[in-house]
């Protein structure tokens, strides 16, 4: 199954989302903030990044922009998940290069569906 990187500053959300993804058989690594996430990605890569937007120091948008402008990481699909659901926010996610935008609160099914569809799409391309 896929190796996923989950980035969120909220510990409870990290734990819960990780549990959901692991139940579906994925391997999940977690990062608390953008800096840590980029470090993990550069070192070990991932099949998919799940990114929160409202995080300390570096926003999810910024992290996504960095991923998408790095030739070595560009191919990794990015799923934004956030409580920010205004059109501007969703647009900003796509502008920063995100592949999908999932609103919080989400159900386990919505999360897994978004993850599977991105993974399938990435595989089709690769």
């Amino acid at each position: 199954m896929a190796r996923l990187l989950l980035v969120d500053d909220e510990p409870n959300i990290r734990t819960l989302t990780r549990t959901m993804l692991e139940k579906a058989g994925h391997t999940v690594e977690v990062a608390e903030h953008g800096e840590e996430a980029l470090g993990i990605l550069r070192e070990r890569g991932a099949d998919l990044v799940i990114l929160d937007i409202a995080m300390p120091e570096m926003s999810g948008w910024e992290v996504c922009r960095i991923i998408k402008s790095d030739p070595a990481l560009r191919h990794i699909p990015v799923l934004m998940f956030t409580v920010m659901t205004r059109d501007e926010d969703v647009n900003r996610s796509f502008e920063s290069g995100a592949d999908a935008h999932l609103k919080k609160p989400f159900t386990m099914r919505e999360l897994l569906e978004a993850v599977e569809s991105l993974l399938a799409h990435a595989q089709g391309e690769g």
Binding site: N12, I13, T17, M20, M84, R86, D89, K104, P105, F106
Partner: peptide, 22 residues
């Protein structure tokens, strides 16, 4: 203000809903 308030209200709701689901 809108994003602060919605963040502060929706984050705990997200946690609670997901925890209930699990």
């Amino acid at each position: 203000i809108i994003s602060n308030v919605s963040h502060e209200l929706k984050t705990p709701v997200t946690i609670a809903l997901n925890a209930v689901e699990l």
